[in-house]
């Protein structure tokens, strides 16, 4: 008769695969967030400078496009790793164990509060200077996404 804990048994090989996929997932997420920050930084700078004479906007177009493409590549890579994880039930369960779910929940909370702080900051800034709504929205997406991903990467360290 099988012992109850044997239902969760991963072979050593599976554990290696689990560790490997965990590292791949982290690497893809890191690349995703770093290129996203750089890309959005350039896009926002481009928007800011475009409204001034002698703008640097044209020179910023190509780096922004390149970073956008690299960001997409990391996004696809992450999706491929996620698909690989999902294809193995045992590995998928291990990589979505209770600690990972706990960390993910905490990361969402980090994203939520960061977005809240950003919106308060943007509202206060709007009292002093004229801030376009589209810029605030774009910044809000960037803050929420990056803070949640960075939160996950930091809290998931062991």
């Amino acid at each position: 008769m099988r012992r109850p804990d044997q239902r969760y048994d991963l072979t050593s090989r599976k554990q290696e695969i689990t560790d490997h996929l965990d590292r791949s997932r982290r690497a893809a997420l890191k690349g995703f967030v770093v290129t996203y920050v750089l890309w959005q930084g350039i896009v926002l700078a481009d928007k800011f400078w475009r409204e001034r004479p002698g703008a640097a906007a044209d020179t910023l177009f190509w780096p922004a496009l390149l970073l956008g493409v690299i960001w997409l590549v990391f996004g696809v890579r992450y999706a491929l790793v996620a698909r690989q994880i999902a294809s193995d039930v045992v590995v998928a369960r291990a990589l979505d164990d209770e600690r990972v779910r706990h960390v993910r929940g905490a990361a969402y909370a980090v994203g939520f509060w960061s977005l809240g702080a950003y919106l308060i900051g943007a509202r206060l800034l709007a009292f002093i200077v004229d801030v376009p709504g589209s810029l605030v929205a774009q910044g809000g997406i960037a803050v929420a996404l990056t803070s949640a991903v960075i939160g996950f990467l930091v809290l998931d360290r062991a």
Binding site: L10, D19, D22, R93
Partner: peptide
């Protein structure tokens, strides 16, 4: 890693 294998979680979780 061995304990993680037997329990069905990641090595990080055991750590």
């Amino acid at each position: 890693a061995e304990l993680a294998s037997r329990v069905g979680v990641t090595r990080k979780t055991i750590n």
